[in-house]
Write a protein that binds this DNA or RNA. Structure first.
Length: 521
RNA sequence: CGGGGCGUAGCGCAGCUUGGCUAGCGCGCUUGGUUCGGGACCAAGAGGUCGCGGGUUCAAAUCCCGCCGCCCCGACCA
């Protein structure tokens, strides 16, 4: 894998490898983010600045997700950033689970002593305020007032917000001290309804991941040890990154009556009896942007699925003199307007004093799916040059050959009509490519030795293994093999070769189905 | 909190061991010209409390002491 930086680079640095070598993966990842102009570290410890291009991708994700939440009957609301410490402790396991990563506000005033501004010791709060690591507790404190009768249920609310988790080590988009997310918090009259909601929202996430982000995911259930603090059941979608590691991309929790009990939220059912409310919560975060990068990008930079690309098409004009420039720009403007009329987002890069080649590299690094080059030759022939961001790999192909395949020429009208279908093709090819990769990096393993060999190999990825161990044994496994059980997949998620019952690779106990073991982020 | 590394122009770095010339290089930036179908070139320019504080010295980016900040590895990570 090459490590390209902006500026002059030898052409030989390009190579067709889609899968960077594992040891350089972290560097490659940061490089894609930097060159793609997505985000950077802030001067504030562990925090991330999301730059306009990165944020534009997040906004597109938000819109797609929000549409789906609305379509399933949810509405948006907003709750406070600060949670009184006593609220957080109302659900014991929940409090314990987040205790080690809380930012706490203890004072509310500064004062100046000898010209130095310090925290005023006299302004200490009676009760410390925790900056929300997640909002279950403060939302349920409010729900108590909103719910009296079964007629008030279900309560289906989502919040778009920032949360803070004081993580020891951070990684842009994947794990930062503060991050943006959405968290849904629903209240239901029956367990059945809440359990259905938990599954429904996981389906929404999976639909988004595969059909919008083009990231294939496995739907499943976390083991008790990996469950959300305070949940009875945690469902998740797991993706595989190009280094073979698993990434948890979204979770949906069935909370039972835990939070209702902690906050004393009861309702009168149809039979006139008071009962605790059943709850769910579910969330996805800006981590999805990280997933997008690590699933699709290559050595030339970011690769975006058209449905999440802030810019669909970039037009690069080519000319040698002012006369040509005028003509080419006129045509480029027309092409831009015609594409915009189709509802596409189009950028005409008419910057002077920049070589066309430099523009190609820049827009590729930013992941723009389609580039149109317009020069004097195109004006003559009445054609357009269409270049796609990527093509599916052909074994043994050289970089030159691949570059050639990315490029096509077509009569003007035909080319313009062909952009939308091309974007659809790219969208589906990305999903297809990621699926093929995941398949290639998945193995059925039937013993600890096989697991060890697989995980140590350059093709390491998802290991499908039988498991019937205890929680303690799971932790021991995790330590010894640097591997965890990512999820217990739903029956319909298991590939044919991994189906059926067997015996646990550690204990030899009977196991009804295989689980996914993998290294994880 | 333990182990390692780094703070010099917007970014990336050299210089420090062995103190001394006007603190340098690449990228980027500004201006002018020539260029432009895969990362242009020439010329002229702008840009610096050398992380902070103290000490040694005729003289400190360089040596000594203290502090601050950042990064990597580990513990941590619904």
């Amino acid at each position: 894998m090459s490590q390209q930086t902006p500026g002059k680079q030898p052409a030989a640095a390009d190579n067709a490898s889609v899968t960077p070598r594992a040891q350089d993966y972290g560097q490659w990842y940061l490089d894609v983010i930097k060159r793609g102009d997505l985000a950077e570290h802030s001067a504030v410890r562990g925090c991330m600045v999301i730059k306009p291009h990165g944020y534009a991708i997040w906004e597109k994700m938000q819109r797609e997700l929000d549409d789906r939440f609305k379509a399933t009957g949810h509405v948006n609301a907003y709750f406070p950033l600060f949670i009184p410490l006593s609220y957080l402790t109302r659900e014991e396991q929940h409090a314990a689970g987040f205790a080690k990563e809380c930012a706490v506000v203890t004072h509310h005033r500064l004062k100046s002593i000898n010209g130095e501004v310090v925290v005023d010791p006299d302004s200490k709060l009676e009760e410390p305020l925790v900056v929300r690591p997640t909002s279950e507790t403060i939302i349920w404190a409010q729900y108590k007032n909103w719910i009296q009768s079964y007629r008030d249920l279900p309560l289906l609310i989502n919040q778009w917000a920032n949360v803070v988790r004081w993580e020891m080590r951070t990684r842009l988009f994947l794990r930062t001290a503060e991050f943006l997310w959405q968290e849904g918090h629903t209240a239901h009259a029956t367990e059945k309804e809440a359990v259905e909601e938990t599954a429904r929202m996981l389906d929404v996430y999976a639909d988004f991941a595969e059909n919008i982000a083009a990231v294939p995911v496995i739907k499943g259930r976390k083991t008790p040890g990996e469950r959300f603090a305070g949940a009875l059941d945690t469902l998740c979608i797991e993706g595989m990154m190009q280094d073979g590691k698993a990434l948890q991309m979204g979770t949906s929790h069935y909370l039972g009556q835990n939070f209702a009990k902690g906050n004393d939220v009861m309702f009168l059912n149809k039979e006139g009896q008071r009962e605790y409310v059943y709850a769910t919560s579910w969330g996805v975060s800006t981590r999805l942007v990280g997933a997008l990068i690590m699933t699709h990008s290559d050595d030339n930079g970011l690769v975006l699925p058209p449905k999440l690309a802030p810019i669909h098409v970039v037009i690069v004009p080519i000319f040698k003199n002012d006369a040509e420039k005028a003509k080419v720009l006129e045509e480029a403007g027309k092409v831009r307007d015609e594409l915009k009329a189709q509802g596409l987002t189009v950028k005409l890069d008419d910057r002077d004093a920049m070589m066309p080649g430099a523009k190609y590299y820049e827009w590729e690094a930013k992941g723009v799916p389609v580039r149109i080059e317009i020069g004097p030759k195109d004006l003559e022939k009445g054609s357009l040059c269409i270049v796609r961001r990527f093509v599916l790999e052909v074994p043994g192909e050289t970089e030159q050959e691949q570059r050639k395949r990315k490029k096509s020429f077509a009569p003007r009208a035909e080319a313009i009509a062909g952009i939308k279908p091309l974007l659809d093709t790219l969208q589906s090819q990305l999903l297809e490519r990621a699926r093929a990769f995941r398949t290639r990096r998945s193995r059925v393993v039937n013993s600890l030795a096989e697991l060890e060999t697989f995980l140590a190999s350059p093709d390491a990825g998802f290991a499908w293994a039988h498991w019937a161990g205890t929680h303690d044994q799971e932790e021991e496994m995790a330590k010894r093999y640097e591997t965890s059980i990512r999820c217990i997949p739903f029956a319909d998620q298991i590939p044919a070769e991994a189906q059926g019952a067997g015996t646990c690779i550690l204990t030899g106990q009977p196991s009804a189905q295989r689980v996914i073991m993998a290294r994880a982020y």
